[in-house]
Design a protein around this nucleic acid. Structure first.
Length: 449
RNA sequence: GCCCUGGUAGUAUAGUCCGGUCUAGUAUAUGCGGCUGUCGCCCGCAGGACCCGGGUCCAAAUCCCGGCCAGGGCGCCA
């Protein structure tokens, strides 16, 4: 990548913010404020110059508003500022709201004073959406790319979703916790871990908070964590990242069915909140979020295999369901559905076997179409069983000594799950590549910006 | 890691099959000029590109080989 650092010495005198305070965001300027004076801050999104008339579209994080400069009726000072403006200049405008029928929003602002806080180069990508650059090019200029209304909409929706999750879990007595990202040994099995140098010792970046959140149910009982985790898999897909955000919960004295009910209620609440409160953002994305009906379908692994058989697809019992088959399944069940009672061979060592059929587990996935959104289950609370299952998976119980110790002191029955936040955001925004819903995505080849 | 497809101005694309008026077309962006109601404003002018290396050939953006990068799929994984 060629990184050209250009420093243009602008001859322009920049303004200081002084005692100016924002009175309104762009979208809060309404026709009924006709005649009021407002102070707006933001960036020049677009300029349309008709000669005696210059339209400046001011953008802030909430939207845009038109600033109209009538050449004949404007002071020389304002005019010289208005003429100097270019795309992405950071500006402040003090002016009068004018009600009008000519703009789509019914308002424009007639400037009395303009401040230029910073100038800008001509942007390397089109942020107005006329000639949209490809994802890779956008990501290379991510800070600028994030100024696009569509991207602002994506991350405001994600913010609302996270807010709704916290609100929901707090209301049900869950305590938010923070477990370590540095871990001492690569033990959990499953995903490959990133190795880091920890004061001369080998350490690893955590792939999940699984073991810690289980330990915490014996003290805090109901916990959740929202944070980044790391997988060193060489995945090259639209739905995998090396660094992703997980929404993890663990609950004492609960089983899979309890946490599945919690989960479907949470999904309902998140969808409802986003569809009700993010109307403007969803409109920008030309997408809508359907509020799901409860309860979600619960298909057992055996049900799924039967169903696939009638589609002419045969999966050997005990095997995981391959991606192309999940796509087929997603067409049959085009919204939320659980897959429950997975075979032991397809689940982790910490998942509780079914009492009635020990070759099955109380593990489940929550699917959204063909994408695995959430994974969870009843956990093993018995140390003896846990050790047995570790051995069955070819893992060494010795390297789990610290974790297993917790099970000596009254580990309660417990269950939990983990939602992939980015996958949840894909579901809420209709985006088809996980990189689009990640501020600064990390994958096998991308480490910058 | 494997398979498929691709890489042309800042951005997005046409041209590549079938090598030759390609002096590389278009849109948008940029710069300059013009325009009194734009909202993908409009009009005129200007500058700006064939991923890198090797090969075939009289001749390569175009064909062949290698590399790098990207997109999609698979696997791994959540």
């Amino acid at each position: 990548m060629s990184l050209r650092i250009s420093v243009v010495s602008s001859s322009m005198d920049l303004d200081v913010i002084g005692d100016w305070k924002r009175t309104h965001y762009s979208v809060d300027v309404k026709p009924e404020m006709d005649g009021c004076e407002v102070t707006l801050f933001g960036w020049v999104q677009e300029i349309r110059d008709l000669g005696a008339l210059r339209f400046i579209i001011l953008q802030d994080r909430e939207g845009t508003i038109q600033v109209t400069v009538l050449r004949k009726k404007t002071s020389a000072e304002v005019l010289s500022k208005a003429d100097a403006l270019q795309k992405r200049f950071s500006i402040g405008v003090k002016g009068t709201v004018k009600k009008t029928d000519i703009t789509p929003r019914g308002v424009e602002v007639i400037p009395k004073e303009i401040k230029i806080f910073n100038t800008a180069e001509s942007p390397p990508i089109d942020i107005c959406g006329k000639t949209l650059a490809k994802l890779d090019v956008c990501l290379d200029a991510r800070a600028l790319d994030l100024c696009r209304e569509e991207n602002i909409a994506v991350f405001k929706i994600q913010h609302k979703a996270v807010e709704a999750v916290r609100e929901f879990l707090f209301a049900r007595g869950f305590i938010e916790v923070h477990t370590p990202r540095f871990i001492g040994s690569a033990t959990e099995g499953g995903a490959a871990l990133f190795k880091v140098d920890y004061f001369g010792r080998d350490a690893f970046l955590a792939q999940s908070p699984q073991l810690y959140k289980e330990q915490l149910v014996m003290s805090l009982e109901k916990v959740f964590e929202i944070g980044p985790f790391f997988r060193a898999e060489e995945s090259h897909t639209r739905r995998h990242l090396s660094e992703f955000v997980s929404i993890d919960i663990e609950e004492a004295f609960a089983d899979a069915e309890d946490v599945m009910q919690l989960l479907e209620q949470l999904m309902h609440y998140v969808c409802k909140t986003v569809s009700e409160k993010c109307g403007r953002e969803l409109a920008v994305l030309k997408y809508s979020v359907k509020v799901p009906e409860l309860p979600f379908k619960r298909l057992t692994y055996d049900d799924v295999l039967e169903e696939l058989k009638s589609e002419g697809i045969v999966i050997p019992w005990g095997e995981d369901i391959p991606t192309p088959v999940l796509r087929t399944l997603g067409k049959i069940h085009p919204y939320f559905y659980f897959i429950t009672r997975w075979p032991k061979s397809a689940r982790s060592f910490y998942i509780q076997p079914c009492a009635d059929r020990p070759e099955l587990t109380e593990g489940f996935d929550l699917m959204w179409r063909w994408i695995e959104l959430v994974s969870g289950g009843t956990r093993v609370a018995s140390k003896r069983l846990l050790v047995k299952q570790l051995e069955e998976k070819g893992l060494n119980p010795d390297s789990f000594r610290c974790h297993l110790q917790a099970f000596d002191y009254g580990m309660p029955p417990h269950a939990g799950w983990a939602i992939g936040l980015e996958r949840l955001t894909m579901m809420l925004t209709g985006k088809k590549n996980i990189r689009e819903v990640t501020l600064y995505p990390r994958d096998k080849t991308r480490l910058t910006p």
